[in-house]
Design a protein around this nucleic acid. Sequence first.
DNA 1: TAGTCTCTCCCCCTTTTTGGGGAGAAGAAA
DNA 2: TTTCTTCTCCCCAAAAAGGGGGAGAGACTA
Lengths: 221, 221
Amino acid sequence: MKKKIYVHVADDHKILIEGIIAVINTDKDIEIKDYSLTGQEVVDWFDKKGNKADVLILDITMPILDGFEVLRHFNKKQINQKVIILSSYDDIKIVQEMLSLGCNGYITKNNAGEHIVNAIKAVANGEQYFSEDIQKIVIKSFSGKFVLPGDSPEKSLIEALTEREIDVIRLISREYSSPEIADKLNLAVSTVDTYRKSLLKKLKVKNAVGLAMYAVKNKII
Amino acid sequence: MKKKIYVHVADDHKILIEGIIAVINTDKDIEIKDYSLTGQEVVDWFDKKGNKADVLILDITMPILDGFEVLRHFNKKQINQKVIILSSYDDIKIVQEMLSLGCNGYITKNNAGEHIVNAIKAVANGEQYFSEDIQKIVIKSFSGKFVLPGDSPEKSLIEALTEREIDVIRLISREYSSPEIADKLNLAVSTVDTYRKSLLKKLKVKNAVGLAMYAVKNKII
DNA sequence: TAGTCTCTCCCCCTTTTTGGGGAGAAGAAA
DNA sequence: TTTCTTCTCCCCAAAAAGGGGGAGAGACTA
């Protein structure tokens, strides 16, 4: 017989917890260990000796301590707790923050029912699990460009760059050297160097790093 | 009756194209318009008046022009062509580059059969489509760098950087040269170069631009 | 105590970048 | 027609970056 997966659920709405328990009870490999209604309760429960769960289902908005604080607590105490975020937020910033705090899964409440059991099993098994809508926004944000902290895309000189210069700055930003760029664009290395020089002058930056940063800021990579 | 989805396939291996056609022909909503064996053929085909396809299935490694070049061509000509990358590469760098070039889907060849029809329908419908393995590595690369100490499989890269290395990568990202960094940190230039080298090795990037990009992505600048 | 990690510096060498200059061809604009 | 921009390539030289390697001091840790 397979080993049971023990789960702790934390959400400030009792009714939602009951719903989750009902869904999970349909699967005999999973068992709810206990539940919490606030972040503080979660922290206290896991701090108490003998209390542990394979997977913690965690809401974000909770009184006293929210989901972020709970994860920060685990990180600070170096507790390696597997956590699935169950949230109504599908905002990329929140997802990103949760990922950076080390959550193992993220599912949204509007399609929790179909995902929760699979998510628990995957995460208990050491995998990550994200519902489709979350996968989508993560990938979307990935294909969008990176934004540097605290800078607005300045009066873009970008119009002042010629087509070829844009070709070159793009490849520089992707870590290519001049010989490699020359090869890709079918140009002489000396020509690529000419573009490098004119780019440095036009954009008033010191080196290739400055060019790459400019490309990032102005979303031309 | 539903409108047919017209597809153009590009791969330098005829046999693979034949396989794809065979799979697609099982679905009566999709029709192969034509195919190309090189990137140049793709570009020429789409440039030719009257030729158009709802979705382009595109291989990366092809003679004359590769998949990257084909997408760059579309971007340069401001052609809004829906593209699904069909590749044997599941390297995050390549996926990332393709995403930034605006591809609408990415599936790997080893599980193309089960995905290709759904991918085509999704992309034709304006959605994005990525096979599970690609979704996984994208999300992993998104979260992987942030995984916290004591946690999870491998140690996070950012945690693996020493204090001094972070000092150096920060200054590199601000366009400082090694002599300048040495001056600012009161070190010998050779010491700064040692840090540069260990950073390049640890972060698996090619040059200072790669270091700066890493710093931006991981918000350590 | 022995081992590992970090910080520091050095040697060698090759490749690349940066900085200065010039210049021809094509095309568009004045 | 002349002028301007863009694209292309070249020369030279100095500075910087990249790629090996080694090595000592100090601190932490198994």
